[in-house]
Nucleic acid binder design. Structure first.
Length: 310
DNA sequence: TAGGCCATCTGGTCCT
DNA sequence: AGGACCAGATGGCCTA
């Protein structure tokens, strides 16, 4: 839920609880002090609020061009200075807003490359970070060992520490039934590869439908390079983005894919494998599982899959 | 209605 | 001095 960027000041931010916060109050105060209260006194309080009050309090001020009765120069209520302080605060707020927008943009980018992305049902910030962490860890393990876990284990690992709703979401993305792999309550840790040997089996496989309504497809082996590609290209994935349905960016059999902003015409292969790579060929070479990253295509699946063809 | 999530404001701290 | 970063506080929105 991003709000307006900084260059579009939220003029009618009715939701802001700070419409009447002190910055605003100061502006009001400076113009219209409370009745029966000297403007100077009001502004002196402003000074105190800034932590810069350093006056001898008993000094009754007979203000005359900043001169006290003792003749010493008293700190003159400095409108320009107060205005500067207020302006700094307002600018700092704007910068902070901008900074948070940048942070949120980065989070949105992250949401698009973790294995569960939906424009309408966004992962929360914390869940996005957790999922990303699990995703990185899983991919690292895959690279390190050169082996692929089964889908169940893969999803289990991805969902480690995630909330049940998010787990269901991820499971739905991967066309798993979320309940079927929540076998370790309380976020108890489990190992990616040991579980690989334990979770092949009918307890998860194909006995029900995933949340998406599509039939689950058996999985658990990797005899073919695309065996675990579920109904690829997905019949309904072409509209998944528009409809707000979950559009899994991850192709498990291909280990992972990066789902960045897709150009029109490329939506029909959400289940396709997209890798980031160094090599680049012409778009004429593109197959359905070529890389699409930042508007470029990188057909290097074979290269990246090599470690798994053993 | 409670709880989760979020945006925003705010003041403090650190750094340049 | 001013900007970046951070965490606390607060209130709005949404959902179960």
């Amino acid at each position: 839920m991003l709000t307006l960027p900084f260059d579009k000041p939220p003029s009618n931010q009715t939701s802001s609880p700070f419409k009447t916060s002190w910055a605003t109050n100061q502006l009001v105060k400076s113009v219209k002090p409370e009745p029966g209260r000297a403007l100077e006194e009001s502004e002196r309080e402003d000074e105190e609020r800034d932590g810069e009050e350093e006056e001898e309090e008993e000094e009754v001020q007979e203000q005359s061009g900043g001169l006290t009765t003792r003749g010493s120069y008293k700190k003159k209520p400095n409108h320009a200075r107060l205005d500067r302080v207020r302006l700094r605060r307002i600018e700092a707020n704007a910068r902070e807003r901008n900074r948070m927008h940048g942070l949120n943009n980065a989070l949105d980018s992250l949401r698009k490359v973790v294995p569960c992305y939906s424009k309408t049902q966004k992962l929360s910030k914390i869940e996005t970070l957790r999922l990303a962490k699990n995703y990185i860890w899983t991919l690292s393990e895959i690279l390190r060992t050169g082996k692929r876990p089964d889908l169940l284990t893969f999803v289990q690992t991805l969902c480690k520490g995630l909330s049940q709703p998010t787990t269901n979401l991820v499971a739905s993305c991967l066309q798993l039934n979320g309940r079927s792999f929540m076998s370790e309550p309380g976020g108890e840790s489990f190992s990616l590869y040991p579980a690989y040997h334990h979770h092949h089996g009918p307890e998860v496989v194909g006995s029900s439908t995933a949340d998406s309504g599509r039939p689950l497809r058996p999985f658990g082996s990797f005899s073919g390079p695309y065996e675990a590609l579920y109904d690829s290209p997905s019949p309904d994935c072409s509209s998944s983005l528009d409809s707000g349905a979950l559009s899994p960016p991850l192709n498990f059999n291909g280990i992972f894919s990066l789902k960045h902003e897709e150009p029109v015409g490329y939506r029909s292969c959400h289940y396709g494998l997209r890798y980031c790579s160094i090599s680049q060929r012409s778009s004429a070479d593109l197959g359905p599982y070529d890389i699409h990253l930042r508007g470029q295509f990188y057909p290097v699946q074979d290269k990246l899959n090599k470690p798994f063809h053993n």
